[in-house]
């Protein structure tokens, strides 16, 4: 069985992001970029399944510019067997990404597609669900546990009420949550090995996908700055201050 894992290049979670002064987007100048943390967890799980002998090959895929190859190489260094970069604009929306993934799924015929539950940049949480629908296969989202046995997968999902355990038929799409596993560190010699692993580049056109951005972002704005507080001496002053400002 092949497992396909989606990887997105995002601003690193440690970076304090800033909105561009003209409100057109996020300032990524000189900013550290990383694999979306949920995607890293997805890849870790795929590698564990392969190491347990339940899969033969792990393929990491991404849709984006050539700079995304850096993240694919990291995925290969973690242990993926090969990588595919679908060369495209970085600002594609989830539906186009899902359609692109579908083309790759049709081409590669994986038994399982594992994706992060969402990317930490757009926080959309849509690509996995859309892919399952387009593919016409089951989906299990927000997985914090994943076991395969034969043609089915048992997935523990984190839901509002607690944990929900479901069984789905394979092939399927699973999107993973934070507590599923802790991704491994990359071994230094594996970085060298990763340089020799195959990385295929396909254009969006070759796959016959047309980028379709249905959503228009009007502008980005940072959260309002909190006003400086004042220290009050006693309750009487507190009440007076509140009254002063017309709050009570």
């Amino acid at each position: 069985m092949k497992i396909m894992v989606g990887i997105k290049r995002v601003v690193d979670y440690n970076v304090r992001i800033r909105v561009k002064s003209d409100g057109s987007g996020i300032d990524t100048d000189g900013v550290k970029m990383s694999i979306n943390p949920f995607d890293e967890i997805a890849l870790e799980q795929a590698l564990r399944i392969r190491e347990a002998g339940q899969a033969e090959e792990v393929i990491v895929i991404t849709v984006g510019g050539s700079e995304c190859q850096q993240q694919l190489r990291t995925g290969l260094a973690m242990g993926a067997d090969r990588a595919i970069q679908v060369d495209a604009d970085n600002s594609l929306q989830p539906l186009t990404v899902a359609r692109t993934f579908l083309k790759l799924v049709e081409k590669e015929q994986p038994g399982l597609v594992i994706l992060g539950k969402q990317a930490i940049d757009g926080d959309n949480s849509q690509t996995g669900q859309m892919l399952a629908a387009l593919w016409g296969r089951p989906q299990a989202t927000f997985a914090s546990g994943l076991e395969l046995s034969g043609d089915t997968a048992t997935v523990i999902r984190e839901v509002d009420a607690g944990l929900e355990t479901i069984e789905i038929d394979l092939p399927a799409v699973v999107t993973v949550d934070l507590r599923l596993n802790e991704p491994r560190f990359v071994k230094l010699p594996d970085i060298m090995k990763a340089k020799r692993k195959p990385l295929e580049v396909i254009s969006l056109d070759d796959l016959g996908v047309t980028a379709q951005n249905d959503l228009q972002v009007s502008h980005y704005a940072p959260p309002a700055v909190r006003e400086k507080g004042i220290m009050v001496e006693d309750t009487a002053q507190l009440v007076a201050e509140l009254k002063n400002r017309g709050l009570v």
Binding site: E182, P183, R184, F185, K187, L188, P189
Partner: peptide, 10 residues
């Protein structure tokens, strides 16, 4: 820890 990875020598 579970993620332990021994450092290599160069």
């Amino acid at each position: 820890k579970d993620t332990y990875m021994q450092g290599i020598e160069i």
